[in-house]
């Protein structure tokens, strides 16, 4: 079972309107994103999302994937959990 983990993300915009995630905050601690490796339109099939953009980033020496859902303006990552909560839908998360 996979769930969406909501993320607080610091973003910078270039003059031509292109944006890039710069920082991620987890549990009140802020991490600097070292590098954005790739960016593509991709919907993870394990959680509910409307056409998000997938950013593959380097943070703290690790490669991670974070997603931006334009429709809601929300950032999230995907996490596997053991506890099953089947039936939990996009509309209640």
């Amino acid at each position: 079972m996979y769930i969406r983990i909501p993320l607080a993300v610091g973003v910078i915009y270039s003059a031509d309107g292109v944006f890039k995630p710069k920082t991620i905050s987890v549990n009140g601690e802020k991490f600097l994103i070292d590098k954005v490796l790739y960016k593509k339109n991709y919907c993870p099939k394990s959680v509910g999302a409307i056409a998000p953009i997938e950013f593959t980033i380097m943070v703290g020496g690790e490669i991670k994937k974070i997603y931006f859902e334009k429709d809601t303006g929300k950032w999230f990552s995907v996490k596997k959990i053991l506890k099953s909560n089947e039936g939990k839908s996009y509309f209640t998360q």
Partner: peptide, 9 residues
Amino acid sequence: MVLNPSLRD
């Protein structure tokens, strides 16, 4: 199903 993958298949 896209919004609720537990419905897939």
